[in-house]
């Protein structure tokens, strides 16, 4: 399936969960996740199924004012 991760196209096997995708992508903790603009809490990462065309955001702490 074709998805976007942080705005970049990426390809994964079908039937993966959100947790599978971010692990295969190599995301490093700490991070928080959103799919198609909706926050997905950590407790739901493993049960959230990703489908083609989904847009995944992996966000981490940065400097802020």
């Amino acid at each position: 399936m074709n998805v976007t991760i942080n705005g970049q196209p990426a390809e994964f096997s079908d039937g993966l969960s959100l947790l599978d995708v971010v692990v295969q992508h190599g995301a490093q903790a700490p991070f928080a996740l959103a799919v198609n603009g909706q926050f997905i809490p950590k407790s739901q990462h493993a049960e959230t199924q990703i489908k083609t065309q989904d847009s995944i955001e992996i966000l981490s702490p940065v400097q802020g004012g």
Binding site: N6, G7, G26, A27, Q28, A29, P30, F31, A32, E57, I58, L59, S60, P61, V62, Q63, G64, G65
Partner: peptide, 22 residues
């Protein structure tokens, strides 16, 4: 101290270093 969230950049260690400094 104020902080923010942005897209994770693997080249910058995923924000780990900054977060540890804070």
């Amino acid at each position: 101290v104020t902080v923010s969230l942005r897209r994770q950049s693997p080249e910058e260690g995923g924000g780990t270093q900054f977060w540890q400094q804070i």
